[in-house]
Nucleic acid binder design. Structure first.
Lengths: 356, 356
DNA sequence: TTGTATGCGTTATCAT
DNA sequence: ATGATAACGCATACAA
């Protein structure tokens, strides 16, 4: 109103001029802009929000336990990628971290009921993920990270985990390994079972028998326990492909404690290429994905959705192996663990152990 | 309006009744509630926001590089703590991750200009932190994590890092160490220089000379480089206190690669008690703080601020040492590193090296 | 090309 | 105790 009065025009003209829409004379528009500038006019986000029924924000609800979130490089990078495009678009990100699926559902409902967001990012996709129908019912636009295995009306931004895992297996095979185990993430997660499938298929493709597998939980403790179990078997694998770095790091530690040298007696690969991977002993061979780009693209797609168009799925550059020193040639001779450690960690089987 | 019509009253009465305010007859109020329920009325967050000029959201802008964020257990836990109290209050958290101080300032300005938040959390406090006067000028309420070293109108929620670090030093002293080094975080951060001061003062309190120090950057690479430098000195320390776990973990790796057994020849302590700390070899002695509680309290305080009162600073339970196996008795005899590693990693000094 | 009028869903200020 | 009416700040259909 003030700007209109100062420019000697009506409210409507001001709105049109300030939004750069046709239907206002160039000279008038200029006068309006000048008036707005002099008055220090700033658009009111809230009023606009009420008027156009949009929140100018996207949401994300994360249902991981905090201690796992803190050890996982995914979310910070993803969010950073998202922000780079949101900041330029006047959009914000509202984040919710919850524990448990019921709280997660409640979180989405609240976001939707309050109209706090115009769309959400669906991460950590699960099998038959209930969030897809939920959001469809709530009429909240979404973008899924990878394509769900339920009917989904939402576009997906996909990064294929499998090539990296397959590459890891091939790498191990080329080093002579024939007994390659896997420590998987929870099977309910698409990426958990996807990486497992990639490992399994890569073994088959190499004409190798399926190796031993333990399904774990992406945590350090879980990775340690899984490794203990795998290496305690009668004929332990000579290499283990882990579904993430955290489990791999903890697993390598357990192996070492059990007397399995890494990589001399056991090769190990991770997934994520976390900050620490290159700085442990031995540096971890792992799989890298472009998480930052993932976030960037996901944000762009969601922006396109709220802009009204119906973007197609997009596939980003697939994961790729980063070879470091936690993988090596398969041990040719006696790879029984050294006696001291073995005695301590596995007293029963230590009876058959002798110095190497 | 619909509810009012249905209940046969006016808009104003509905507003009063639904907000449980005095000035409406009990019977009328009941009729209104019934009508609202039948109509499935839900309050509009946006309209309320416009009307009362509040966002019902708090903000947080994080200016760490993504790869460091991903390796740091702080933010996820802090945010999780924040959420537990926000969710119950109808508040949301809008998160911004940026790179660089200028983007950070811009982030706060945008949050304020758009009126997107009613207050912000100030984390990673720096010396003479420019965000304090900025937010004061912007008239954005805030709560600071620990008390800034500039005049601040904002309440602070404090967790003292120092007791934990001091405890670590005392622990090392009790193990016989007399030459205790430190790998610090950037000095511009309050927690960086605070931990350094704690280390320094603890040494003085133990009547020990100041140990060698390298100022680093909280990253794994930084911790590795700092350690290399420290252990390359003529008379390397027998123990190193690191300002965070990431540097400690990378540092322990470097030490091992340089032929320093941990803890046989070098003791190491971290800070954070990250997920991996207990699952590396050797398990890391480190300092733990209640980050979840920190987030919870900070949210409560910010809520109190926007509610109109002027809460006092609150001090939470201080940090405490978690003793694991990366610390041990000071080496009594020849602690020169073993020759093989040493040859590889430090060829110059290897000339003086002999087998142990 | 410009102006007028109204809607968005609340809360707040008056009257009565 | 209740009801009408005015903000809040923008967008927009429609008239001129």
């Amino acid at each position: 109103v003030d700007v209109a009065r100062r420019a000697g025009v009506s409210k409507g003209s001001v709105s049109f001029a300030l939004n750069g829409r046709p239907g206002v004379a160039a000279e008038t528009a200029e006068r309006i802009h000048a008036a707005a500038a002099e008055l220090g006019w700033r658009p009111s986000h809230r009023a606009r929000s009420l008027s156009v029924s949009r929140a100018f924000a996207f949401g994300m609800v994360v249902a991981r336990p905090p201690e796992l979130l803190g050890a996982d490089p995914f979310f910070p990078s993803f969010i950073a990628g998202v922000e780079t495009v949101l900041a330029a678009s006047g959009y914000s990100l509202v984040l919710q971290v919850v524990s448990g699926v019921e709280a997660e559902t409640a979180g989405y409902r609240r976001l939707a009921a309050d109209g706090r967001v115009d769309g959400v990012f669906l991460t950590d996709l699960r099998h038959r993920d209930c969030r897809v129908p939920l959001l469809a019912e709530l009429a909240v636009p979404a973008v899924t990270l990878n394509r769900p295995d339920v009917d989904s009306p939402f576009p997906a931004v996909c990064v294929d985990d499998r090539p990296g895992v397959a590459e890891a297996v091939r790498h191990l095979v080329s080093l002579g390994h024939r007994r390659i185990g896997h420590v998987a993430g929870p099977e309910k997660f698409l990426h958990g079972s996807g990486r497992r499938a990639a490992w399994s298929e890569a073994l088959a493709a190499a004409d190798l028998p399926q190796g031993p597998i333990v399904v774990s939980d992406f945590s350090a403790a879980g990775g340690a326990a899984a490794t203990r179990s795998l290496l305690g078997e009668i004929d332990p694998p000579t290499a283990i492909v882990y579904a993430n770095d955290l489990m791999a790091l903890a697993g390598a530690t357990v192996a070492h404690d059990m007397g399995f040298g890494v990589p001399s007696q056991l090769s190990v690969t991770g997934f994520d290429d976390s900050e620490l991977a290159a700085h442990v002993h031995p540096p971890l061979t792992t799989v890298r994905t472009d998480v930052l780009g993932w976030g960037r693209t996901a944000a762009e797609v969601l922006l396109a959705v709220v802009a009204g168009d119906d973007p197609a799925d997009v596939w980003l550059s697939p994961s790729a192996l980063v070879v470091r020193s936690s993988t090596g040639p398969v041990p040719t001779t006696d790879r029984r663990p050294s006696p001291r450690r073995r005695l301590k960690d596995n007293p029963i089987r230590a009876l058959r152990t002798e110095p190497q």
